[in-house]
Design a protein around this nucleic acid. Sequence first.
DNA 1: GACAATCTTCCTACCAGAAGGTAGGCGAAA
DNA 2: TTTCGCCTACCTTCTGGTAGGAAGATTGTC
Lengths: 195, 195
Amino acid sequence: MESKTSTSEKILDIAQSLIVAGGYNGFSYADISAAIGIRKASIHHHFPTKAELVSVLVDRYKRQAESGLESVRKQFSSPAEQLRSYLNYWQTCIRDASPSFCVCAMLAGEMQMLPEEVASRIRAHFHNLARWLTSVLRAGVEQGLFRLNNRPEEEAQMLMASVHGAMLSARAFSDPGLFTKIVTPQITKLLGQDC
Amino acid sequence: MESKTSTSEKILDIAQSLIVAGGYNGFSYADISAAIGIRKASIHHHFPTKAELVSVLVDRYKRQAESGLESVRKQFSSPAEQLRSYLNYWQTCIRDASPSFCVCAMLAGEMQMLPEEVASRIRAHFHNLARWLTSVLRAGVEQGLFRLNNRPEEEAQMLMASVHGAMLSARAFSDPGLFTKIVTPQITKLLGQDC
DNA sequence: GACAATCTTCCTACCAGAAGGTAGGCGAAA
DNA sequence: TTTCGCCTACCTTCTGGTAGGAAGATTGTC
């Protein structure tokens, strides 16, 4: 009854952790090979090219994120709780250094020199996340929970930027707690408790 | 009377633009060589190792940033204007794609796998920027210009994260205008015009 | 069920080119 | 006469990627 993680999943797992640490050019097939004890050529069997590997990786991440966000929406009825749950997810990740950074945020920085097939997928993820945040904010406004000074789409972009910037700062200062310090006041502001 | 840019400055210039595009592992001595028409070995003459090259590069950037921020403080007496001027600088950069991203922000993402001599310099820059923003915010509060919901240090961190996140979003969406859309409401909020 | 045919997964053994870096020389300037 | 800036030539290691084969599992057919 052992948990069966297929080789290709293992490859994606460690590739993801390597990208989170050093970006697209920060890892090689040899790194993966060493990490999971399989030969380089075997990795090429599963993912013929690097661009393909990362494309599949981002697709998987996108899917996980989408279903994660959807289940958050189902689990909590209050938009405020939904937002808190989303932020809490990253808070935990960053504290435990599990994936201490969003793969897509990491890759977005290198956008200009990524293979187009990867870049377009990153863009898609950013769109999805923005859309989700927008709809949560909109719901919050309709329920009289949030007070926004801008259109929900814009507030969503602001929130997203805050989250990504907070990840970066937490990393730059080697201070996981900084993420929370930066990001929780954003919710407070949305709730209009500052007036 | 030609403007004399020394070779080492040229090397740093194009290295910086390459890092901004693809990070530490996103450029090579061969790239620089091709870009300025000098042999690889000649670059090693100026900067023996890559870690040294990037260290000097970050040092130069840090100095430029510090003196830039200081001159902003001298040029504008109002903290609000000082902040606007800082944000305006990046706005222009991102629109013109001159350096469409902060080198240190770019490198901060790769922190975990950077040579320590580089990493410590990145950290220092983040500290400097945070300190500058903090003092501007504090001055604004003292002058009754800003209404902060948190301590100036924390608001500075929030602002900094916003700026870096906005850079990332602008890049991800290939939309320079997005930077402004994300970042200007932050000043509006500080000015307390939302109440 | 027997048996061959076909995947699938992994392997060894390569390859060409790019990586960062070194040794040593040459001409001009100081 | 030394220093400076640049060169050619070379080295080692790593890079993404390929060719071809061995062992086991899965399949279709009788």
